[in-house]
Design a binder for these strands. Sequence first.
DNA 1: CGGGCAACAATTAGCACGGT
DNA 2: ACCGTGCTAATTGTTGCCCG
Length: 336
Amino acid sequence: MTPTIKDVAAAAGVSIGTVSKVINKSGFVSEKIRERVLLAITLLNYKPNAVARSLKQSKTHLIGIIVDDISNLYMMKIIKSVENLATEMEYNLISCSHNNRPEEERKALQRLMEKRVDGIIMVPTGSNLDELNMPNNIPVILVDRKVENARFDTVVHENINTSITLVQHLYLHGRRKFLFIHGALRHSVEIERVNGIKKAIHLLGLDMSAQVFLEVGAALGHISAEVRKYLEHSGLPEGIYATNHLALAGTVRALWDMGVQVPEEVSVAGFGDIDTYGLLRPSFTLAKEDPCEVGKIASELLFERIEFDKQVDQPKEFLVTPKITIGTSCGTHVRP
DNA sequence: CGGGCAACAATTAGCACGGT
DNA sequence: ACCGTGCTAATTGTTGCCCG
């Protein structure tokens, strides 16, 4: 059996309370006894039992994080960023995916609560929070997506104005007929970005009937096939704008497969960082999200609540503004 | 300074009790 | 004798408080 504090106490010839004081550097222990205890710890290769400690302290030093899909690079960056602070604060992370299914979201929450995690950071599916049995005894921070009835702090990207800026950008370089490729309008991110597009169309006085909105799925292979099918059937627009990194990657792949030259034949803009390793010299304009910043703000908020017992008086919304990087797609072409 | 002990949360073995 | 029910007490490792 692995040695317990009891074994250390017996080996050192002291009580377990004294061993506890030595381990936690609390209270008074004479130097002679302290050395004896430390020697016993070394000889027995004793490691304190975190489970028993949690039992006593009602604190597990565990943080739960629920995202839509843990293999999604964007989500991975949020998790990594949360982990950075968690490690510094001597907490461990439990990561879960809900795959955008409310039922899995509910179960993941349930499991984390049963594990008695000290706090939760979560990307909501967008389902009704009242039906999720959200915890009210531990802090929760929502990230990436806004939800109605939020009694929780939320960290999200700015989507509407950024979306408007991207359309304006294509417009300023002479584009007037667009293909807007977006995902399912299930959560706030896609809804806001599409709303931004519509606002931009209105602001710029573009002909709405000349614009096309194409909704695509969430799997890269399918997206590129759908985009290709559309382009082969309906021809190239002047500009393409994809609202998320998967839609953008699928679009770029379809254009490559079709041998379409960007920006010579069509301008491309979109959300997302699809060039993880910096291998591309992108000829399209990007609004790059900053998932690391989202994770950083969210984890800082969470630890404020956990460690300093800070209460949520009025739930706040924190906005992270995506950085726009100009590709070559717009610089070379000017409308005649 | 150091020992003793309750408390923490959840589970389960053990036991008494009543009914068939 | 056997079964189900409901209760108590023990169990786990650690901490923090009290007492001498």
